[in-house]
Amino acid sequence: MIKLNNIKKVYRTKTIETTALNNIDLHVPKGEFLSIMGPSGCGKSTLLNIIGLLDEPSGGNIIVDGKEVKNFNSKALAKFRNQKLGFIFQSFHLIPDLNVIDNVELPLLYRKISAKERRNLAANALESVGLANRKSHFPNQLSGGQKQRVAIARAIVGQPEIILADEPTGNLDSVMGDEVMAILSKLNKENNTTIIMVTHDERMAKKTHRLIRLYDGSQVA
């Protein structure tokens, strides 16, 4: 499903060169629930961003769903992200000017889908995360756990094959964190969705199929 070969990421300024990722090789088969752990600044989020095609590696190549993404132009990358990938961020990244259902609809705006169908799909996604009764609320009217569930609904509304979650439970208490993990596990089991999750929480990582550890930009386990 996802293959990373010899991925490097180097940040350069005029005076300093910082290596964020160093020769990462990774293979994530379809349907796997993978967690990535490591200390702050070790390159976890950078790796996730590169897998999610949100950032470009300085070297190496990425193959997602059998396609080498190096050759994609920006429009093709956007289309690929829209159809294959779903994102969940630690700080939710909900758009405050949109209500809950409009936030969930967002990925569908960039597909050729009628407004009615968009509405239905968004309502179903919200129902699957248990927030059918919060459609018209705005993000600032929700708790942290509810916000993250809306973010999950947004990530799954387009039925992507891969979900990339960057510390999805990082801003939540343990009860809410467990709720979010339960939803992700269910998605992985029932829909065979590939999930890659960055986490600091060993307890959450143990709930996934496989754990890899990064240290100073290199994979150590």
């Binding site: 949100l54 429009k75 829209n82 758009i95 960039y110 387009g158």
Partner: peptide, 16 residues
């Protein structure tokens, strides 16, 4: 700008 980031992450291209 973070809204733009989210929109692009979910498939908006520059033209959108």
């Amino acid at each position: 700008s973070s809204e733009i980031g989210v929109r692009k992450a979910f498939g908006a291209h520059d033209g959108n």
